[in-house]
Write a protein that binds this DNA or RNA. Structure first.
Length: 891
DNA sequence: CATCCGACAAGTG
DNA sequence: CACTTGTCGGATG
């Protein structure tokens, strides 16, 4: 059973009427146990439970129906059962058919939900089916746990208070959650007396939380008033600490708690908040408070390892080297301290402040390290009293108000924790309350604000810009966002409209640091270093004395959130040109580079621009044909056969997209010339399809599509059709294959826009496309989809450098192409996906390709190339020479 | 006209 | 849920 089956089985249980005696067995069935096993369970021979009416399966689960005491008490009974300890079930579950309480026994993680929702929580129950849940170890599990609890609390509160989920009240809800989090943190780390807050709440809120609402309001009001002004508040609140700092200013309200929400509140308070990492916790708080952000949590919080990919090479690694060098020289160490105290860190897209928090924490940790060392050398008395790294050296811009507030809170927590460490090391620390001045976080639009206005560049100190700005493709921005980007690019000619929004941050960063004591490094989608973006963006950035100081090449976005964004990233560091070393990172491997170009290669700067026709005289390659039909012109096999047998076969053609070429799938399409429309309409099937196309096109937002609603029999864009044969290259294909997929088809096929096509051209074109050297070129200069190849005629084929071939060379290449096709045919009916699987590629096909490579490469340099690097170097040399020559001719 | 892209999207185990 | 791998068609040059 796969997880989807388990989900469906649990859904079925949730929908059926609840039978306490039956539930354990149906749960066993739902979690992937064979019928025979379930029968034995029913018979009692496998059931190990020691609880009345319970079902216990060794290592899998322990269920008990809830009695009068309620699901909570039953769950506790399950937890305390001797048999549970003996048989170690993955899941404990108690239910009364109304609500469910369950626990992941190993981690102690709990779930409370309505009985009808158990399907939605199938992920929680997967361990009962022997499937491990995804448990990343790279980060602090406390953060993950806390976020989970807070999210559940939030959901429960919203359920109990539907009006709090409306836009009008969201801000109140956000504020409420932030205040709550602060209190839970403060009472665990010693800002408040231990457990002062939760004791006050749980003493006065009633057994089921019926009074929690009023109690929390009073508590928050008290924290906003000096202790001597609380006469109107209940007596128990008079001891609570005065916090101030804006956190408790403004309206104070609280939602009402039902039983489930109150349970989660208790669990959240029980957590040990001492261990919380403010660095990523900020974004987590934000995600908890904002359901939309929660859905997007996977994209917007940057994991600490990824933050360090930016901050390390940007300035921390260099500081470490300086510290090491000065380790035995007090004056040298003091110099490093001076440098550190004059460093400003500026995140122009700070969100809830993760980069700033990590940067602050790392600098404070280094300061402690240096001071300890100075103490060793010179004695404790010579050391400065307080930290010299002011929190006011940390700057941010953030567009949403709530995130900006959260960032300040996260920085406060970070400062508190750093002071505690300082106190531990040197026995002194400043008072925590009431809250003081914090980091400078500006609430505004970073693409409109002058950055120097937020954080001015320094003469006697450095500014490091770091962050992870939002990614949004040029075609997916709304009008406001497009205008913001246009504003950032206002001083430049050439179009920026195809660029990702993150490109505007890079541009502004480059303008900020140029000629200043400043450097920048940002996370970006890898697309800004690929394909059409390279010539559109990087000449502007790398002009006037800037260089790429380091880069992390494409890595997959990843963090602890469950729904990660599907995106591949790069980190690119910018600085004013210098002789200092440059570093190129591949995953964890670091290489020194002589130069880093905009493709993130250790090579000279070069920008390959798209061309309308091949600058090396190759045959014309055309984009495929785009139906824009809502799928209504496309036929499956049975539909095609039906039309053929009823006399409409001449209106049907084989339809080729990428999958048809690569995986040998079969689809057909209606291909109707203008003069055939009346005839086509005599088929009611075709007629219905055409009407569907027409109405679909009318609904399109694009006028170019609407314009074709009165010609529904036709593809909107017809780029080309073969007279005799076509050579098709899928426009997207897996990066794992050692050669690009390419195939030859007859005149009866129509290529969709998912292929590039050369019509009625000689076979040697196949020899070129199927060569290693062509793959290397495409992989370098074309765009990518994640890291998969994306074939472009303008960027890849029309720029592909080839030597001037002789007739006999072309004939040899054609023969070589035929040899490849013939070898493939020997393995019929294996598809291209089968044949070019890197693990299973047949030896004879490999040999045919090797021969093809040797033949072609000898035509370039008289022998095969030794490495891909050598191939690229030669291609770029040919390309540069050709571009130079064309420019000269044009002048 | 002729593309180039997607903090993706859909299918699979 | 994790992993693989290329749809589809709008917006723009």
């Amino acid at each position: 059973m796969n997880p989807t089956d388990i989900f469906e089985a649990l859904e079925a249980i949730a929908k059926a009427p609840f039978d306490p005696a039956e539930f354990g067995f149906s749960f066993a069935e739902a979690t992937d146990n064979a019928q025979a096993t379930v029968s034995k369970l029913r018979g009692g021979s496998l059931n190990r439970s020691d609880i009345e009416g319970g079902v216990l399966m060794n290592l899998k689960f322990h269920y008990a129906p809830a009695d009068a005491l309620g699901v909570e008490a039953t769950l506790d009974a399950l937890k305390g059962s001797k048999r549970t300890a003996k048989h170690k079930p993955a899941i404990l579950i108690a239910t009364d058919g109304e609500t469910v309480a369950a626990e992941h026994w190993k981690s102690g993680e709990r779930l409370h939900c309505a009985f009808s929702e158990i399907g939605d929580h199938f992920g929680f129950f997967l361990p009962a089916a022997g499937k491990d849940r995804y448990r990343p170890a790279e980060e602090n599990p406390v953060d993950v746990k806390a976020t989970g609890k807070l999210a559940k609390l939030y959901d429960a509160l919203v359920k109990a208070n539907p009006d709090w989920a409306t836009d009008a009240r969201r801000h109140d809800m956000n504020q409420f959650m932030t205040r709550l989090i602060f209190c839970m943190f403060a009472e665990d780390v010693g800002i408040f007396p231990e457990n002062q807050f939760s004791r006050a709440i749980f003493t006065h809120a009633g057994d089921k939380g019926e009074e929690a609402h009023g109690v929390l309001i009073s508590a928050f009001q008290a924290m906003n008033l000096p202790k001597n002004k609380r006469t109107d508040l209940p007596a128990w609140s008079h001891d609570l600490e005065y916090v101030n700092g804006g956190l408790f200013a403004g309206t104070i309200d609280a939602p009402r708690f039902d039983v489930i929400a109150f349970r989660y509140l208790r669990e959240a308070c029980d957590l040990d908040w001492k261990e919380i990492n403010p660095d990523i916790f900020g974004s987590m708080i934000q995600s908890v408070a904002d359901p939309k952000a929660r859905a997007e949590l996977g994209m917007h919080y940057t994991s600490v390892p990824n933050i360090m990919k930016v901050l390390g090479p940007l300035f921390l690694d260099e500081l470490d080297a300086e510290i090491d060098k000065a380790w035995d020289r007090p004056n040298g160490l003091r110099k490093v301290l001076d440098r550190m105290s004059a460093i400003r860190v500026f995140d122009p897209a700070c969100g809830s402040g993760n980069f700033l928090v990590v940067a602050y924490r790392e600098l404070r940790a280094r300061e402690i390290r240096i001071l300890r060392r100075l103490g060793e050398i010179e004695g404790q008395t010579q050391i400065q009293m307080w930290s010299q790294i002011p929190i006011t050296n940390f700057y941010g811009i953030e567009i949403t108000d709530f995130s900006a507030e959260t960032a300040k809170l996260a920085m406060f927590i970070a400062e508190y924790q750093a002071n505690a460490m300082f106190g531990e090391a040197f026995g002194r620390k400043p008072a925590a309350l009431p809250l003081k001045v914090g980091a400078s976080i500006r609430n505004g639009n970073a693409l409109r604000i002058d950055w120097a206005d937020v954080c001015s560049p320094l003469v006697d100190g450095e500014v490091f810009i770091a962050g992870n700005p939002p990614f949004l493709g040029g075609r997916n921005m709304n009008a406001d966002q497009k205008a913001d980007v246009a504003h950032a690019f206002r001083d430049f000619s050439g179009s920026h409209k195809a660029l990702d929004m993150v490109a505007a941050w890079y541009l502004k960063a480059s303008e900020y640091i140029r000629g200043k004591r400043a450097a920048a490094a940002l996370v970006a989608t890898n697309s800004i270093c690929q394909g059409a973006s390279v010539p559109a963006l990087w000449p502007k950035i790398l002009a006037d004395g800037l260089e790429i100081s380091f880069a992390h090449r494409t890595f997959k976005w990843r963090n602890n959130a469950s729904a990660n964004a599907a995106v591949m990233c790069v980190v690119v560091g910018l600085r004013n040109s210098s002789g200092r070393p440059k570093w190129l990172f591949d995953e964890t491997v670091r290489n020194a580079a002589a130069n880093i170009n905009a493709y993130l290669l250790d090579a000279d700067d070069s920008f390959v621009t798209p061309e309308r026709i091949s600058i090396f005289g190759l045959p014309e390659m055309l984009f495929g044909n785009m139906p824009r039909d809502g799928g209504h012109l496309i036929l499956d096999q049975s539909e095609a056969e039906m039309l053929k047998s009823s006399g409409y076969g001449h209106l049907v053609r084989r339809y080729m997209g990428s999958e048809e070429v690569i995986k040998g799938k079969e689809r057909w399409c209606l291909w109707i010339e203008d003069h055939q429309v009346d005839e086509a309409r005599t088929s009611s099937f075709i007629s219905e399809r055409l009407d569907a196309v027409a109405s679909n096109r009318l609904e399109s937002p694009a006028t170019s599509t609407q314009d074709f609603s009165n010609r529904p029999h036709r593809f909107v864009q017809i780029q080309g059709v073969a007279r005799d044969h076509s050579i098709l290259v899928p426009s997207v294909s897996s990066e794992r294959r050692p050669y690009l997929p390419v195939a030859r088809f007859g005149a009866d096929t129509i290529s969709s826009n998912l292929n590039q096509a050369i019509y009625d051209a000689p076979e040697w074109c196949i020899a070129l496309i199927a060569s290693r050297i062509h793959l290397v070129w495409i992989a370098t200069v074309c765009g990518k989809l994640k890291s998969d190849f994306r074939y472009s005629n303008t960027l890849g084929w029309n720029t592909f450098p080839v030597p001037a071939f002789t007739e006999s060379q072309l004939e040899a290449l054609s023969q070589s192409a035929r040899a490849i096709l013939k070898t493939r045919y020997k393995h019929h009916p294996a598809t291209i996906a089968d044949l070019y699987d890197p693990d299973k590629m047949p030896e004879d096909l490999r040999a045919a390709h090797r021969a093809n490579d040797d033949l072609l490469e000898s035509m370039y340099i008289g022998r095969p190339f030794k490495t891909d690097t050598e191939r690229l170097e030669h291609l770029f040399k040919l390309y540069a020479a050709k571009v130079k020559k064309l420019k000269k001719e044009a002048a």
